[in-house]
Write a protein that binds this DNA or RNA. Structure first.
Lengths: 245, 245
DNA sequence: CGGCAGATTGACACTAATCAACATGGGTGG
DNA sequence: CCACCCATGTTGATTAGTGTCAATCTGCCG
Protein backbone atom coordinates (compact mmCIF):
# COMPACT_ATOMS: atom_id res chain seq x y z
CA UNK A 1 0.00 0.00 0.00
CA UNK A 2 1.20 3.49 -0.72
CA UNK A 3 1.28 6.66 1.30
CA UNK A 4 -2.46 7.12 1.07
CA UNK A 5 -2.65 10.80 0.31
CA UNK A 6 -5.86 11.26 -1.57
CA UNK A 7 -4.21 12.73 -4.60
CA UNK A 8 -6.72 11.09 -6.87
CA UNK A 9 -9.85 12.34 -5.17
CA UNK A 10 -11.66 14.34 -7.81
CA UNK A 11 -13.64 17.53 -7.36
CA UNK A 12 -16.89 15.59 -7.39
CA UNK A 13 -15.71 13.64 -4.38
CA UNK A 14 -14.65 16.68 -2.44
CA UNK A 15 -17.50 19.06 -3.22
CA UNK A 16 -20.58 17.01 -3.91
CA UNK A 17 -23.97 18.55 -4.47
CA UNK A 18 -26.11 18.58 -1.37
CA UNK A 19 -29.28 19.59 -3.18
CA UNK A 20 -32.08 17.10 -2.80
CA UNK A 21 -35.03 17.83 -5.03
CA UNK A 22 -38.46 17.33 -3.53
CA UNK A 23 -40.66 14.68 -5.06
CA UNK A 24 -44.33 14.55 -5.93
CA UNK A 25 -46.29 11.29 -5.94
CA UNK A 26 -47.29 10.07 -2.49
CA UNK A 27 -48.15 6.38 -2.23
CA UNK A 28 -48.91 4.88 1.20
CA UNK A 29 -46.47 7.08 3.12
CA UNK A 30 -43.86 7.15 0.40
CA UNK A 31 -42.64 10.19 -1.49
CA UNK A 32 -41.13 9.63 -4.93
CA UNK A 33 -38.01 11.66 -5.31
CA UNK A 34 -35.70 12.39 -8.24
CA UNK A 35 -32.04 13.32 -7.67
CA UNK A 36 -29.11 14.17 -9.95
CA UNK A 37 -25.89 12.23 -10.07
CA UNK A 38 -23.47 13.48 -7.44
CA UNK A 39 -26.25 14.28 -4.99
CA UNK A 40 -25.57 13.22 -1.43
CA UNK A 41 -28.76 11.64 -0.17
CA UNK A 42 -27.43 11.44 3.37
CA UNK A 43 -24.03 11.62 5.00
CA UNK A 44 -22.37 9.43 7.61
CA UNK A 45 -23.42 10.65 11.05
CA UNK A 46 -26.61 12.44 9.91
CA UNK A 47 -29.76 11.77 11.89
CA UNK A 48 -31.39 8.77 10.25
CA UNK A 49 -34.81 10.31 9.64
CA UNK A 50 -35.69 8.56 6.43
CA UNK A 51 -35.57 5.16 4.81
CA UNK A 52 -35.07 5.08 1.04
CA UNK A 53 -35.85 2.57 -1.64
CA UNK A 54 -34.02 2.73 -4.96
CA UNK A 55 -36.43 2.70 -7.90
CA UNK A 56 -33.85 3.31 -10.62
CA UNK A 57 -30.23 4.39 -10.82
CA UNK A 58 -27.18 3.48 -8.75
CA UNK A 59 -25.87 4.87 -5.48
CA UNK A 60 -22.49 4.49 -3.86
CA UNK A 61 -22.39 3.94 -0.10
CA UNK A 62 -19.12 4.84 1.55
CA UNK A 63 -17.16 5.71 4.63
CA UNK A 64 -14.17 8.06 4.57
CA UNK A 65 -11.07 8.85 6.61
CA UNK A 66 -9.97 12.32 7.68
CA UNK A 67 -7.55 12.76 4.77
CA UNK A 68 -10.05 11.80 2.08
CA UNK A 69 -9.32 8.12 1.64
CA UNK A 70 -12.64 6.53 0.89
CA UNK A 71 -13.99 3.00 1.11
CA UNK A 72 -17.15 2.25 -0.82
CA UNK A 73 -18.98 -0.37 1.24
CA UNK A 74 -21.48 -1.14 -1.49
CA UNK A 75 -23.51 0.00 -4.47
CA UNK A 76 -27.29 0.22 -4.24
CA UNK A 77 -29.61 -0.16 -7.20
CA UNK A 78 -32.98 -1.50 -8.31
CA UNK A 79 -35.21 -2.17 -5.30
CA UNK A 80 -32.56 -1.99 -2.61
CA UNK A 81 -33.42 -0.29 0.68
CA UNK A 82 -31.15 2.25 2.37
CA UNK A 83 -31.06 3.22 6.04
CA UNK A 84 -32.90 0.11 7.19
CA UNK A 85 -30.75 -0.54 10.24
CA UNK A 86 -32.42 0.96 13.30
CA UNK A 87 -29.48 3.18 14.19
CA UNK A 88 -29.91 6.73 15.36
CA UNK A 89 -27.47 7.98 12.72
CA UNK A 90 -26.60 6.87 9.21
CA UNK A 91 -23.46 4.75 9.32
CA UNK A 92 -22.25 5.69 5.85
CA UNK A 93 -22.72 8.29 3.15
CA UNK A 94 -25.05 7.67 0.20
CA UNK A 95 -24.30 9.50 -3.03
CA UNK A 96 -25.95 9.17 -6.44
CA UNK A 97 -23.68 7.73 -9.13
CA UNK A 98 -26.32 8.24 -11.82
CA UNK A 99 -29.53 10.28 -11.91
CA UNK A 100 -31.95 8.41 -9.70
CA UNK A 101 -35.54 7.84 -8.73
CA UNK A 102 -36.15 6.93 -5.11
CA UNK A 103 -39.01 6.30 -2.73
CA UNK A 104 -38.61 7.98 0.62
CA UNK A 105 -40.32 6.85 3.82
CA UNK A 106 -40.33 8.58 7.19
CA UNK A 107 -38.42 6.59 9.74
CA UNK A 108 -41.20 7.02 12.29
CA UNK A 109 -43.84 5.55 10.00
CA UNK A 110 -41.46 2.73 9.23
CA UNK A 111 -40.92 1.93 12.89
CA UNK A 112 -44.67 1.90 13.46
CA UNK A 113 -45.13 -0.65 10.71
CA UNK A 114 -42.35 -2.78 12.12
CA UNK A 115 -44.08 -2.91 15.47
CA UNK A 116 -47.57 -3.43 14.09
CA UNK A 117 -47.13 -5.78 11.13
CA UNK A 118 -45.96 -9.18 12.36
CA UNK A 119 -43.90 -10.15 9.32
CA UNK A 120 -42.39 -6.74 8.80
CA UNK A 121 -39.49 -6.89 11.26
CA UNK A 122 -38.67 -10.30 9.87
CA UNK A 123 -38.46 -8.98 6.29
CA UNK A 124 -36.22 -6.10 7.37
CA UNK A 125 -34.08 -8.55 9.30
CA UNK A 126 -33.79 -10.60 6.14
CA UNK A 127 -32.62 -7.57 4.18
CA UNK A 128 -30.09 -6.47 6.80
CA UNK A 129 -28.79 -10.03 7.10
CA UNK A 130 -28.27 -10.12 3.39
CA UNK A 131 -26.25 -6.92 3.58
CA UNK A 132 -24.21 -8.45 6.37
CA UNK A 133 -23.44 -11.51 4.30
CA UNK A 134 -22.26 -9.35 1.44
CA UNK A 135 -20.20 -7.27 3.85
CA UNK A 136 -18.40 -10.40 5.01
CA UNK A 137 -17.66 -11.46 1.44
CA UNK A 138 -16.30 -7.98 0.87
CA UNK A 139 -14.05 -8.28 3.94
CA UNK A 140 -12.56 -11.47 2.53
CA UNK A 141 -12.04 -9.69 -0.77
CA UNK A 142 -10.46 -6.59 0.77
CA UNK A 143 -8.26 -8.39 3.25
CA UNK A 144 -7.02 -11.37 1.30
CA UNK A 145 -7.49 -11.06 -2.45
CA UNK A 146 -5.02 -9.74 -5.02
CA UNK A 147 -5.91 -7.06 -7.55
CA UNK A 148 -6.93 -9.50 -10.32
CA UNK A 149 -8.92 -11.61 -7.88
CA UNK A 150 -10.70 -8.50 -6.65
CA UNK A 151 -11.64 -7.32 -10.12
CA UNK A 152 -12.70 -10.81 -11.20
CA UNK A 153 -14.92 -11.12 -8.11
CA UNK A 154 -16.38 -7.71 -8.77
CA UNK A 155 -17.26 -8.46 -12.38
CA UNK A 156 -18.85 -11.79 -11.53
CA UNK A 157 -20.90 -10.26 -8.73
CA UNK A 158 -22.22 -7.61 -11.10
CA UNK A 159 -22.90 -10.20 -13.78
CA UNK A 160 -24.91 -12.30 -11.34
CA UNK A 161 -27.08 -9.43 -10.15
CA UNK A 162 -27.72 -8.34 -13.75
CA UNK A 163 -28.70 -11.87 -14.63
CA UNK A 164 -31.02 -12.02 -11.61
CA UNK A 165 -32.95 -8.97 -12.75
CA UNK A 166 -33.08 -9.89 -16.44
CA UNK A 167 -33.32 -13.64 -16.62
CA UNK A 168 -34.92 -16.37 -14.56
CA UNK A 169 -32.11 -18.88 -14.13
CA UNK A 170 -29.03 -18.40 -11.98
CA UNK A 171 -26.78 -17.81 -14.94
CA UNK A 172 -24.47 -14.84 -15.35
CA UNK A 173 -24.95 -12.06 -17.87
CA UNK A 174 -22.29 -12.05 -20.57
CA UNK A 175 -22.49 -8.31 -20.98
CA UNK A 176 -22.27 -5.96 -18.00
CA UNK A 177 -22.90 -2.26 -17.87
CA UNK A 178 -20.81 -0.38 -15.30
CA UNK A 179 -22.75 2.65 -14.07
CA UNK A 180 -19.76 3.73 -11.96
CA UNK A 181 -16.37 5.00 -13.07
CA UNK A 182 -12.93 3.51 -12.40
CA UNK A 183 -12.55 5.67 -9.30
CA UNK A 184 -15.62 4.13 -7.70
CA UNK A 185 -14.52 0.62 -8.60
CA UNK A 186 -11.12 1.40 -7.06
CA UNK A 187 -12.63 2.71 -3.83
CA UNK A 188 -14.90 -0.32 -3.69
CA UNK A 189 -12.09 -2.84 -4.13
CA UNK A 190 -9.49 -1.04 -2.02
CA UNK A 191 -7.27 -0.29 -5.03
CA UNK A 192 -6.26 2.78 -7.04
CA UNK A 193 -7.73 3.93 -10.33
CA UNK A 194 -4.50 3.00 -12.12
CA UNK A 195 -4.42 -0.53 -10.75
CA UNK A 196 -8.06 -1.08 -11.68
CA UNK A 197 -7.38 0.15 -15.20
CA UNK A 198 -4.27 -1.99 -15.57
CA UNK A 199 -6.15 -5.02 -14.27
CA UNK A 200 -8.99 -4.55 -16.75
CA UNK A 201 -6.38 -4.32 -19.48
CA UNK A 202 -4.65 -7.48 -18.25
CA UNK A 203 -7.92 -9.43 -18.19
CA UNK A 204 -8.64 -8.19 -21.72
CA UNK A 205 -5.17 -9.17 -22.96
CA UNK A 206 -5.60 -12.60 -21.37
CA UNK A 207 -8.87 -13.00 -23.26
CA UNK A 208 -11.11 -13.28 -20.21
CA UNK A 209 -13.12 -10.14 -20.96
CA UNK A 210 -13.71 -7.59 -23.69
CA UNK A 211 -14.13 -3.85 -23.22
CA UNK A 212 -16.25 -2.39 -26.05
CA UNK A 213 -16.27 0.85 -24.06
CA UNK A 214 -14.73 1.62 -20.65
CA UNK A 215 -18.17 1.30 -19.07
CA UNK A 216 -19.29 -1.97 -20.60
CA UNK A 217 -17.68 -5.34 -20.11
CA UNK A 218 -18.21 -8.60 -21.93
CA UNK A 219 -17.38 -11.78 -20.11
CA UNK A 220 -15.59 -14.14 -22.47
CA UNK A 221 -14.30 -16.81 -20.08
CA UNK A 222 -16.47 -16.95 -16.99
CA UNK A 223 -14.84 -20.20 -15.93
CA UNK A 224 -11.38 -18.77 -15.53
CA UNK A 225 -12.86 -15.61 -14.07
CA UNK A 226 -14.57 -17.73 -11.45
CA UNK A 227 -11.33 -19.54 -10.65
CA UNK A 228 -9.61 -16.23 -10.09
CA UNK A 229 -12.44 -14.94 -7.92
CA UNK A 230 -12.45 -18.09 -5.81
CA UNK A 231 -8.76 -17.61 -5.08
CA UNK A 232 -7.35 -20.79 -6.54
CA UNK A 233 -4.07 -18.87 -6.68
CA UNK A 234 -3.49 -19.80 -10.28
CA UNK A 235 -1.19 -17.13 -11.59
CA UNK A 236 -1.05 -18.42 -15.14
CA UNK A 237 1.64 -20.92 -14.25
CA UNK A 238 4.21 -18.27 -13.36
CA UNK A 239 5.28 -20.08 -10.24
CA UNK A 240 5.56 -23.44 -11.92
CA UNK A 241 7.58 -21.98 -14.76
CA UNK A 242 9.85 -20.08 -12.41
CA UNK A 243 10.50 -23.21 -10.37
CA UNK A 244 10.95 -25.34 -13.48
CA UNK A 245 8.14 -27.84 -12.77
CA UNK B 1 0.34 -7.86 -1.44
CA UNK B 2 2.38 -11.01 -1.84
CA UNK B 3 1.72 -14.24 -3.63
CA UNK B 4 -0.78 -15.37 -1.02
CA UNK B 5 0.25 -18.94 -0.57
CA UNK B 6 -0.70 -19.82 2.96
CA UNK B 7 2.79 -20.70 4.00
CA UNK B 8 2.15 -19.47 7.49
CA UNK B 9 -1.02 -21.43 8.12
CA UNK B 10 -0.28 -23.63 11.09
CA UNK B 11 -1.47 -27.16 11.69
CA UNK B 12 -4.19 -25.91 14.03
CA UNK B 13 -5.65 -23.94 11.13
CA UNK B 14 -5.60 -26.82 8.71
CA UNK B 15 -6.74 -29.64 10.93
CA UNK B 16 -8.94 -28.19 13.64
CA UNK B 17 -10.81 -30.35 16.10
CA UNK B 18 -14.38 -30.94 15.09
CA UNK B 19 -15.39 -32.48 18.39
CA UNK B 20 -18.15 -30.59 20.12
CA UNK B 21 -18.74 -31.74 23.68
CA UNK B 22 -22.33 -32.09 24.76
CA UNK B 23 -23.53 -29.79 27.53
CA UNK B 24 -25.66 -30.31 30.59
CA UNK B 25 -27.76 -27.55 32.13
CA UNK B 26 -30.97 -26.76 30.24
CA UNK B 27 -32.46 -23.34 30.90
CA UNK B 28 -35.57 -22.26 28.92
CA UNK B 29 -34.56 -24.02 25.72
CA UNK B 30 -30.86 -23.39 26.12
CA UNK B 31 -28.14 -25.99 26.51
CA UNK B 32 -24.92 -24.92 28.21
CA UNK B 33 -21.98 -26.25 26.33
CA UNK B 34 -18.23 -26.31 27.03
CA UNK B 35 -15.70 -26.52 24.17
CA UNK B 36 -11.91 -26.62 24.00
CA UNK B 37 -9.83 -24.09 22.16
CA UNK B 38 -9.48 -25.02 18.51
CA UNK B 39 -12.95 -26.53 18.36
CA UNK B 40 -14.97 -25.63 15.30
CA UNK B 41 -18.45 -24.79 16.49
CA UNK B 42 -19.80 -24.59 12.97
CA UNK B 43 -18.30 -24.21 9.52
CA UNK B 44 -19.18 -21.93 6.63
CA UNK B 45 -21.93 -23.57 4.60
CA UNK B 46 -23.21 -25.86 7.36
CA UNK B 47 -26.96 -25.97 7.95
CA UNK B 48 -27.69 -23.23 10.46
CA UNK B 49 -29.53 -25.36 13.00
CA UNK B 50 -28.46 -23.59 16.16
CA UNK B 51 -27.99 -20.13 17.56
CA UNK B 52 -25.20 -19.68 20.10
CA UNK B 53 -24.53 -17.19 22.84
CA UNK B 54 -21.01 -16.78 24.20
CA UNK B 55 -20.90 -17.01 27.98
CA UNK B 56 -17.12 -16.88 28.34
CA UNK B 57 -14.10 -17.22 26.08
CA UNK B 58 -13.36 -15.86 22.63
CA UNK B 59 -14.23 -17.21 19.19
CA UNK B 60 -12.85 -16.30 15.80
CA UNK B 61 -15.31 -16.00 12.92
CA UNK B 62 -13.77 -16.36 9.50
CA UNK B 63 -14.13 -17.07 5.82
CA UNK B 64 -11.42 -18.76 3.77
CA UNK B 65 -10.29 -19.08 0.16
CA UNK B 66 -9.48 -22.33 -1.61
CA UNK B 67 -5.72 -22.07 -0.98
CA UNK B 68 -6.04 -21.45 2.75
CA UNK B 69 -5.94 -17.66 2.87
CA UNK B 70 -8.22 -16.70 5.69
CA UNK B 71 -10.05 -13.54 6.65
CA UNK B 72 -11.29 -13.28 10.21
CA UNK B 73 -14.48 -11.21 10.02
CA UNK B 74 -14.71 -10.75 13.76
CA UNK B 75 -14.08 -12.06 17.24
CA UNK B 76 -16.99 -13.02 19.49
CA UNK B 77 -16.88 -12.88 23.27
CA UNK B 78 -18.92 -12.16 26.38
CA UNK B 79 -22.64 -12.16 25.57
CA UNK B 80 -22.37 -12.04 21.80
CA UNK B 81 -24.80 -14.07 19.72
CA UNK B 82 -23.70 -16.25 16.79
CA UNK B 83 -25.81 -17.42 13.87
CA UNK B 84 -28.55 -14.84 14.39
CA UNK B 85 -29.03 -13.99 10.74
CA UNK B 86 -31.94 -16.02 9.37
CA UNK B 87 -29.90 -17.68 6.64
CA UNK B 88 -30.28 -21.32 5.76
CA UNK B 89 -26.53 -21.86 6.10
CA UNK B 90 -23.84 -20.37 8.30
CA UNK B 91 -22.01 -17.69 6.37
CA UNK B 92 -18.70 -18.13 8.17
CA UNK B 93 -16.80 -20.57 10.34
CA UNK B 94 -16.73 -20.20 14.12
CA UNK B 95 -13.72 -21.62 15.97
CA UNK B 96 -12.81 -21.34 19.64
CA UNK B 97 -9.69 -19.31 20.35
CA UNK B 98 -9.81 -20.14 24.06
CA UNK B 99 -11.72 -22.76 26.03
CA UNK B 100 -15.31 -21.56 26.04
CA UNK B 101 -18.69 -21.77 27.67
CA UNK B 102 -21.66 -21.27 25.35
CA UNK B 103 -25.42 -21.39 25.42
CA UNK B 104 -26.98 -23.18 22.50
CA UNK B 105 -30.53 -22.65 21.24
CA UNK B 106 -32.38 -24.55 18.57
CA UNK B 107 -32.98 -22.43 15.52
CA UNK B 108 -36.60 -23.57 15.33
CA UNK B 109 -37.38 -22.46 18.87
CA UNK B 110 -35.68 -19.18 18.12
CA UNK B 111 -37.78 -18.58 15.03
CA UNK B 112 -40.94 -19.33 16.99
CA UNK B 113 -40.04 -16.71 19.56
CA UNK B 114 -39.29 -14.18 16.85
CA UNK B 115 -42.76 -14.66 15.41
CA UNK B 116 -44.59 -14.72 18.73
CA UNK B 117 -42.84 -12.12 20.86
CA UNK B 118 -43.40 -8.66 19.41
CA UNK B 119 -40.11 -7.09 20.49
CA UNK B 120 -37.97 -10.09 19.68
CA UNK B 121 -37.43 -9.54 15.97
CA UNK B 122 -36.58 -5.96 16.75
CA UNK B 123 -33.88 -6.94 19.24
CA UNK B 124 -32.35 -9.40 16.81
CA UNK B 125 -32.48 -6.74 14.14
CA UNK B 126 -30.62 -4.45 16.51
CA UNK B 127 -27.91 -7.04 17.05
CA UNK B 128 -27.51 -7.82 13.36
CA UNK B 129 -27.42 -4.11 12.54
CA UNK B 130 -24.66 -3.65 15.05
CA UNK B 131 -22.68 -6.41 13.38
CA UNK B 132 -23.26 -4.73 10.04
CA UNK B 133 -21.95 -1.42 11.35
CA UNK B 134 -18.81 -3.11 12.64
CA UNK B 135 -18.44 -4.91 9.32
CA UNK B 136 -18.46 -1.59 7.50
CA UNK B 137 -15.83 -0.14 9.82
CA UNK B 138 -13.77 -3.23 9.12
CA UNK B 139 -14.14 -2.72 5.37
CA UNK B 140 -12.76 0.80 5.72
CA UNK B 141 -9.91 -0.61 7.76
CA UNK B 142 -9.11 -3.44 5.33
CA UNK B 143 -9.45 -1.42 2.17
CA UNK B 144 -7.88 1.87 3.07
CA UNK B 145 -5.73 1.77 6.20
CA UNK B 146 -1.99 1.17 6.45
CA UNK B 147 -0.47 -1.45 8.76
CA UNK B 148 0.07 0.93 11.72
CA UNK B 149 -3.38 2.41 11.28
CA UNK B 150 -4.88 -1.07 11.26
CA UNK B 151 -3.10 -2.15 14.42
CA UNK B 152 -3.88 1.13 16.20
CA UNK B 153 -7.57 0.78 15.29
CA UNK B 154 -7.55 -2.81 16.48
CA UNK B 155 -6.04 -1.98 19.86
CA UNK B 156 -8.42 0.90 20.47
CA UNK B 157 -11.43 -1.20 19.55
CA UNK B 158 -10.34 -3.88 22.02
CA UNK B 159 -9.64 -1.29 24.68
CA UNK B 160 -13.12 0.19 24.26
CA UNK B 161 -14.91 -3.12 24.54
CA UNK B 162 -12.86 -4.05 27.61
CA UNK B 163 -13.74 -0.70 29.16
CA UNK B 164 -17.42 -1.25 28.34
CA UNK B 165 -17.51 -4.50 30.23
CA UNK B 166 -15.45 -3.32 33.19
CA UNK B 167 -16.31 0.32 33.73
CA UNK B 168 -19.37 2.49 33.28
CA UNK B 169 -18.01 5.47 31.35
CA UNK B 170 -16.94 5.47 27.70
CA UNK B 171 -13.27 5.52 28.55
CA UNK B 172 -10.72 3.07 27.20
CA UNK B 173 -8.92 0.45 29.25
CA UNK B 174 -5.20 1.14 29.60
CA UNK B 175 -4.35 -2.52 29.77
CA UNK B 176 -5.63 -4.99 27.18
CA UNK B 177 -5.43 -8.75 27.23
CA UNK B 178 -5.18 -10.35 23.78
CA UNK B 179 -6.80 -13.79 23.88
CA UNK B 180 -5.75 -14.42 20.27
CA UNK B 181 -2.28 -14.89 18.83
CA UNK B 182 -0.45 -12.83 16.22
CA UNK B 183 -1.74 -15.09 13.46
CA UNK B 184 -5.34 -14.29 14.32
CA UNK B 185 -4.63 -10.59 14.54
CA UNK B 186 -2.96 -10.78 11.13
CA UNK B 187 -5.90 -12.61 9.55
CA UNK B 188 -8.27 -10.10 11.13
CA UNK B 189 -6.40 -7.06 9.82
CA UNK B 190 -5.47 -8.45 6.42
CA UNK B 191 -1.74 -8.54 7.23
CA UNK B 192 0.91 -11.20 7.86
CA UNK B 193 2.17 -12.36 11.24
CA UNK B 194 5.52 -10.68 10.60
CA UNK B 195 3.99 -7.31 9.78
CA UNK B 196 1.78 -7.43 12.86
CA UNK B 197 4.79 -8.24 15.03
CA UNK B 198 6.89 -5.49 13.47
CA UNK B 199 4.07 -3.00 13.90
CA UNK B 200 3.65 -3.84 17.58
CA UNK B 201 7.39 -3.33 17.98
CA UNK B 202 7.26 -0.02 16.16
CA UNK B 203 4.42 1.24 18.36
CA UNK B 204 6.39 0.17 21.43
CA UNK B 205 9.57 1.91 20.22
CA UNK B 206 7.54 5.05 19.52
CA UNK B 207 6.27 4.94 23.10
CA UNK B 208 2.58 4.54 22.22
CA UNK B 209 2.20 1.13 23.85
CA UNK B 210 4.05 -1.27 26.15
CA UNK B 211 4.19 -5.04 25.78
CA UNK B 212 4.73 -6.69 29.19
CA UNK B 213 4.07 -10.00 27.45
CA UNK B 214 3.16 -10.70 23.82
CA UNK B 215 -0.46 -11.19 24.84
CA UNK B 216 -0.94 -8.11 26.98
CA UNK B 217 -0.76 -4.54 25.78
CA UNK B 218 -0.63 -1.32 27.76
CA UNK B 219 -1.82 1.82 26.06
CA UNK B 220 0.55 4.67 26.89
CA UNK B 221 -0.56 7.35 24.43
CA UNK B 222 -4.18 6.82 23.48
CA UNK B 223 -4.29 10.25 21.86
CA UNK B 224 -1.70 9.50 19.22
CA UNK B 225 -3.11 6.01 18.83
CA UNK B 226 -6.50 7.55 18.08
CA UNK B 227 -4.96 9.90 15.53
CA UNK B 228 -3.38 6.95 13.76
CA UNK B 229 -6.62 4.97 13.84
CA UNK B 230 -8.60 7.91 12.45
CA UNK B 231 -6.25 8.11 9.49
CA UNK B 232 -4.83 11.59 9.91
CA UNK B 233 -1.93 10.30 7.78
CA UNK B 234 0.67 11.51 10.26
CA UNK B 235 3.66 9.27 9.73
CA UNK B 236 5.73 10.70 12.56
CA UNK B 237 7.26 13.29 10.28
CA UNK B 238 9.04 10.73 8.10
CA UNK B 239 7.92 12.43 4.95
CA UNK B 240 8.93 15.87 6.13
CA UNK B 241 12.32 14.66 7.30
CA UNK B 242 12.97 12.74 4.10
CA UNK B 243 12.07 15.79 2.02
CA UNK B 244 14.09 18.09 4.30
CA UNK B 245 11.22 20.40 5.32
C1' DC C 1 -12.90 22.83 -32.97
C1' DG C 2 -11.39 23.16 -28.28
C1' DG C 3 -11.64 21.86 -23.65
C1' DC C 4 -12.05 18.73 -20.08
C1' DA C 5 -13.07 14.67 -17.32
C1' DG C 6 -12.15 10.04 -17.35
C1' DA C 7 -9.22 6.27 -18.77
C1' DT C 8 -4.91 4.27 -20.03
C1' DT C 9 0.00 3.58 -20.00
C1' DG C 10 4.79 4.18 -18.35
C1' DA C 11 8.57 4.86 -14.91
C1' DC C 12 9.63 4.64 -10.39
C1' DA C 13 8.97 4.37 -5.15
C1' DC C 14 7.54 2.16 -1.27
C1' DT C 15 4.71 -0.80 1.75
C1' DA C 16 4.06 -5.09 3.22
C1' DA C 17 4.88 -10.08 1.84
C1' DT C 18 8.17 -13.68 1.59
C1' DC C 19 11.90 -16.43 3.09
C1' DA C 20 14.92 -17.38 6.70
C1' DA C 21 17.21 -17.22 11.10
C1' DC C 22 16.89 -16.63 15.82
C1' DA C 23 14.60 -15.74 20.55
C1' DT C 24 11.34 -16.89 24.11
C1' DG C 25 8.77 -19.59 27.12
C1' DG C 26 5.55 -22.94 28.69
C1' DG C 27 4.95 -27.91 29.02
C1' DT C 28 6.67 -32.67 29.31
C1' DG C 29 9.48 -36.57 30.14
C1' DG C 30 13.58 -38.30 31.81
C1' DC D 1 14.37 -30.39 38.84
C1' DC D 2 16.31 -29.54 34.70
C1' DA D 3 16.79 -30.15 29.78
C1' DC D 4 14.67 -30.51 25.78
C1' DC D 5 11.05 -29.45 22.53
C1' DC D 6 7.79 -27.25 20.01
C1' DA D 7 4.71 -23.40 19.30
C1' DT D 8 4.80 -18.71 19.10
C1' DG D 9 6.91 -14.45 18.47
C1' DT D 10 10.59 -11.34 16.81
C1' DT D 11 13.98 -9.62 13.66
C1' DG D 12 16.64 -9.33 9.24
C1' DA D 13 17.27 -9.36 4.08
C1' DT D 14 15.11 -9.32 -0.07
C1' DT D 15 11.32 -9.00 -3.41
C1' DA D 16 6.69 -8.78 -5.32
C1' DG D 17 2.76 -6.17 -5.89
C1' DT D 18 0.58 -1.83 -5.76
C1' DG D 19 0.72 2.97 -5.08
C1' DT D 20 2.44 7.39 -6.81
C1' DC D 21 3.57 10.71 -10.17
C1' DA D 22 3.36 12.06 -14.79
C1' DA D 23 2.34 11.91 -19.70
C1' DT D 24 -0.83 10.67 -23.17
C1' DC D 25 -5.12 9.08 -25.17
C1' DT D 26 -10.22 9.01 -25.81
C1' DG D 27 -14.67 10.60 -26.18
C1' DC D 28 -18.21 13.75 -24.99
C1' DC D 29 -20.35 18.27 -24.83
C1' DG D 30 -20.44 23.06 -25.54
Amino acid sequence: MGTHFASHATASHRFPKFVVSQGAANVEGAVVQRVDSGTILFAEGDDAECVFEVVSGTMRLYKALADGRRQITGFASGGQMLGLAPERHYVCTAEAVTPMVLRRYQRRAFDRRIDSEPGMARRILQAVSNELRMAQDQMLLLGRKSAVEKVASFLLRLAETEADTETVDGDVADRIDLPMGRGDVADYLGLTVETVSRTFTKLRNDGLIALPTPSSVEILDSGQLRELAAGVADDGGMLRRAAGW
